[in-house]
Design a protein around this nucleic acid. Sequence first.
DNA 1: CATGCTACCTTGTAACGCAAGGTAGCATGC
DNA 2: GCATGCTACCTTGCGTTACAAGGTAGCATG
Lengths: 112, 112
Amino acid sequence: MKAKNTISQMRRGILEFCIISLLADHEVYTAELIDRLKAANLLVTDGTLYPLLSRLQKSDILQYRWVESESGPPRKYYSLTDEGREVLAELDLSWLDINGSVEQIRRGNKSE
Amino acid sequence: MKAKNTISQMRRGILEFCIISLLADHEVYTAELIDRLKAANLLVTDGTLYPLLSRLQKSDILQYRWVESESGPPRKYYSLTDEGREVLAELDLSWLDINGSVEQIRRGNKSE
DNA sequence: CATGCTACCTTGTAACGCAAGGTAGCATGC
DNA sequence: GCATGCTACCTTGCGTTACAAGGTAGCATG
């Protein structure tokens, strides 16, 4: 399976985009986020996620608040900042743009 | 422009896919490839491309042959191997799959 | 109070993109 | 036939990132 590496590059590329999208309407904590991503066929470990979330938080795209759990240690619930919403809007556009690029390249192949 | 970094991650993710797609029907050498990618809105430098092409060639996805130029030094023209074609078929499917993931995540946001 | 589960986080490694710098073939003009 | 410049190839060093593995600590349960 030689394509494996290229495929995981593609998945990795959209990871941040998907996370930001997932946080658009709901506060979510890490384990929940992992489940949601898994449901969308994107496998991630928490060792990947923690640094990523903390990076996004330092960039003022995300914010969090501590919420006590009824069954265990407290959780950090993340949500988008206002700036995060602006970023998401840009990302949505870029995603369309990138889709366009890919389409163009694949169309090019077929017509020539 | 905080989204910049995330956007370039997305672009980077599909770079290999686009290159393999572009080589599907035509032999191409590096400078030409850069132009084609630029036309599809993907900016790349040759310092990025050379290691990448050589990696793909070592994986037997690409092959090349030397072609003398009428106006300068000889060029390496790359094309897909048979195995490369199989990989491309897999990548096409994965691309659809990834699109599905993104769609699902964005749909999820809107309906909830 | 010991065990286990859950949640947080850090460290080390390897891969990759990219800017910068380097080599060499070939054409052109003097 | 030599100097200059263009084109094409390739390498090196740096910073970023994903990921596996390992670590800490709160809280519940028997």
